[in-house]
């Protein structure tokens, strides 16, 4: 028990408090709103909020107690994301062996991040897997359609594994847990802020062909709110005030970029959601789309500033 309390320091406790206050506020808001205006259709929002409670709890269980659990959880997240991507992409039956390599790369990559091998983690996928995957396809020998497979499969690995594995890298540096909480919270809140500002003020569409619901007002309001939030949560990181403002601002932008990249992929495939894993949110990939781009950006900014 003592050991457990030692693990959970005061910063982490205040973070957990903030997280649950936000969730409680949202739940209370929808409850009161639903009572005052029974005609308003809040079912979708309520389902989403419920899923947020579950996801937050799972996230805390995976990160607060032991870093070993965290790495296993991140690997599982990558696994589910990869499975979702490979399911929706229309690949050939001849690509199965290359897909198997993708799945096998997950434990290897997380082993490198767990050991804190920074360079190995950074080059394993973009250098070694980028050679191994096309070569595996060549060995199968079916050249019809091979260009598409050679391009799509490594890119899939970048999204599902490389980006997310930076969560593990983040944990491997001193003060990593605080940074991890900071990052995941601001990125997910960035999504929420963009949604809320968009609903409140949204008029001018930002990318009408990709995401008809996204507006300039939502984007700008979201990024500014996230920057303020990042400033308020500075205590979780070892950075200075000016650093944290730059980092939060850029990370919020990266989150938006990840979101619209996955959106455009879905649009091309004529899908609304990548799967039905999370009630109210869609697939796992729909939830972590902003993370896959924001995590590496955040990690390398922090690394640049603090080293």
């Amino acid at each position: 028990m003592n050991n457990l309390l030692h693990q959970i320091d005061s910063n982490v406790l205040s973070f957990i408090l903030i997280l649950f206050s936000v969730l409680s506020f949202a739940s209370a808001l929808f409850f009161v709103w639903g009572k005052l205006k029974p005609e308003a259709n809040l079912k979708e929002l309520k389902t989403r909020c419920k899923s947020w409670w579950i996801m937050s709890t799972v996230f805390l269980i995976a990160t607060v107690f032991s870093t070993k659990i965290s790495y296993v959880a991140f690997a599982l997240l990558s696994f589910v994301a990869l499975r979702e991507l490979l399911t929706i992409l229309k690949l050939r039956q001849e690509d199965r062996s290359a897909m198997l390599l993708c799945y096998l790369a997950i434990p290897i990559q997380y082993f490198f991040t767990y050991q804190g091998y920074l360079i190995a983690s950074l080059v394993f996928i973009p250098v070694f897997m980028f050679v191994a995957l096309p070569f595996r396809l060549v060995l199968v020998g079916q050249t019809e359609g091979i260009i598409q497979s050679m391009a799509v499969i490594p890119a899939t690995l970048m999204i599902a594994l490389f980006g997310l594995s930076h969560l593990g890298l983040l944990l491997s540096i001193p003060g990593g847990r605080g940074l991890l909480f900071f990052l995941v919270f601001i990125v997910e809140m960035n999504d929420v802020f963009q949604f809320v500002w968009g609903k409140l003020l949204g008029k001018h569409k930002i990318l009408p062909k990709v995401s008809p619901n996204k507006t300039w007002e939502g984007f700008i309001g979201g990024v500014l709110s996230t920057t303020v939030l990042g400033f308020a949560l500075k205590f979780l990181t070892p950075c200075t005030t000016s650093q944290i403002i730059i980092i939060s601002f850029l990370t919020a932008n990266a989150g938006f970029i990840g979101d619209v990249i996955i959106s455009s992929v879905k649009r091309d495939l004529h899908l609304k959601d990548t799967s039905t894993a999370i009630p109210g949110h869609g697939g796992v990939l729909d939830r972590i789309d902003s993370l896959v781009v924001a995590v590496p950006v955040f990690f390398h900014l922090v690394y640049f500033f603090t080293k």
């Binding site: 499975r83 979702e84 490979l86 399911t87 039956q93 897909m99 198997l100 799945y103 799967s275």
Partner: peptide, 18 residues
């Protein structure tokens, strides 16, 4: 849906799909 991708006829190693 998709079970034929996980383990098609003639395949030995199953690959995960939703």
């Amino acid at each position: 849906e998709n079970t034929g991708k996980v383990l098609p006829k003639d395949a030995i190693v199953p690959i995960p799909f939703n």
